[in-house]
Design a binder for these strands. Structure first.
Lengths: 221, 221
DNA sequence: TTTTGCTTTACGGATATCTGTAAGGGATTG
DNA sequence: CAATCCCTTACAGATATCCGTAAAGCAAAA
């Protein structure tokens, strides 16, 4: 089993819950917990340079702002910089985000090894994930059904981009121009209109305000 | 100190973290943890009817949906129904919501005794809150500054209602009609226009889409 | 009472949205 | 080749938004 694990999680109660479980239910020799991405990175780097690297990083994705000025503000940034230094470290993400597009990109782009979605069984799942990852397998919380887009409607990257832009205050005309500049097709205002209208039906929204609100609340944007 | 405490929190890791801290740092004889509002309510009711009521309820506000059909879906509902049966029970809310309007209304309407905002020190704050509430005082996470509307722009209840309706897909015309039916004044479409435009400036939003997205992400809606 | 200041309201014009219809462009199939 | 399907695009009309101006209402101050 892993001997050195690093945990980055900003909620103190959650953090303690994880540490407690790892100490009691797995025989981990050394567990280091941190509440800030920056501090976690410093721990990682120091250990790496001393030739005693962490074998596993367990991190959240979102971290609250604080009075302390921070270089790293999200778990994704932390993973990127850590993986850039140590390609061998294993990474498990423990977050409440359940947007499958987002999670898929963590596996393909950040090359994470496991994803646990916070919930009523997530501590058990995390233990499970650690064991799987230790044996060089990947783990994803079973309720997510990553590859089978079976259950509900899902947005592709294109839809996601449009909705993100809309939620940032861009008009459809501006988005159309932006897509043309970036040579992304389709890019007509009309098509954007259609795409968004389709999403109204799929998500049961009355208009764009409603759709944006729903998607943000669902953590999809 | 309290002898019987009931905890309602749906994230397993957070739940365990809280229980662990209460067991180790306070001498609580009996702690019951539940992952569902409904189950917490059942525990509460049974104990009350047996003449051995819980003295303190610690609850989250938001609970994830699940396959299990639920009557109670939020901490607010749980508090209402519990307080309705037992006026003596003390309530501490432990949530990540930091919207001061919302929190204030929990104190005035749900008559809660303490509010702890999840974060890097929230476990210590929770211990503190329990001790304060035990001595019949109230507790609010210090970083919140509830009464001093000092720092950033805050919305009053009126603004909040309008933004909530907009985010649910109502047009300003519909909202105007709704306000008139409820005899709430002001209620002209024009005034609603002005109010929203003013919020654009205060929150640095380009349009309504942008404003709604920002406010939801800040947890204000 | 008049003045002043603030909020609410009405209204109009420019812009954006939402929602049809219709036309054009591939790709696939028979 | 034609037929079909699906996606993209153009366009147009109805509705909604954004934003300015101006008038009306109201309360406190002069």
């Amino acid at each position: 089993m892993f001997k050195k694990i690093l945990i980055a999680e900003d909620f103190q109660d959650t953090n303690k819950g994880i540490v407690e479980a790892l100490e009691n239910r797995l025989q981990i020799e050394f567990i280091q917990e941190e509440l800030y991405c920056d501090k976690a990175y410093n721990r990682f780097k120091l250990a790496y340079e001393n030739g005693e690297p962490y074998e596993l990083l367990i991190t959240d994705l979102t971290f609250k702002e604080s009075h302390v000025t921070r270089r790293l503000t999200s778990g994704k940034e932390l993973i990127n910089i850590v993986k850039n230094i140590d390609q061998n470290i294993k990474v498990i993400v423990n977050s409440m985000i359940d947007n499958t597009v987002e999670i898929n990109s963590l596996f393909t782009e950040q090359k994470i090894n496991g994803y646990v979605c916070k919930g009523r069984n997530s501590l058990n799942e995390l233990i499970n994930a650690i064991q799987e990852v230790y044996h060089n397998r990947t783990f994803v919380s079973p309720q997510l059904n990553l590859n089978s887009a079976s259950s509900v409607f899902e947005m592709d990257k294109y839809d996601l981009m449009i909705l993100k832009d809309l939620s940032e205050g861009y008009t459809k005309k501006e988005i159309s121009e932006k897509l043309k500049r970036q040579n992304i097709s389709p890019n007509s205002e009309s098509t954007i209109d259609k795409k968004v209208s389709k999403l109204f039906d799929e998500f049961g929204a009355k208009n764009t305000h409603h759709l944006i609100a729903k998607l943000i609340k669902q953590g999809k944007i």
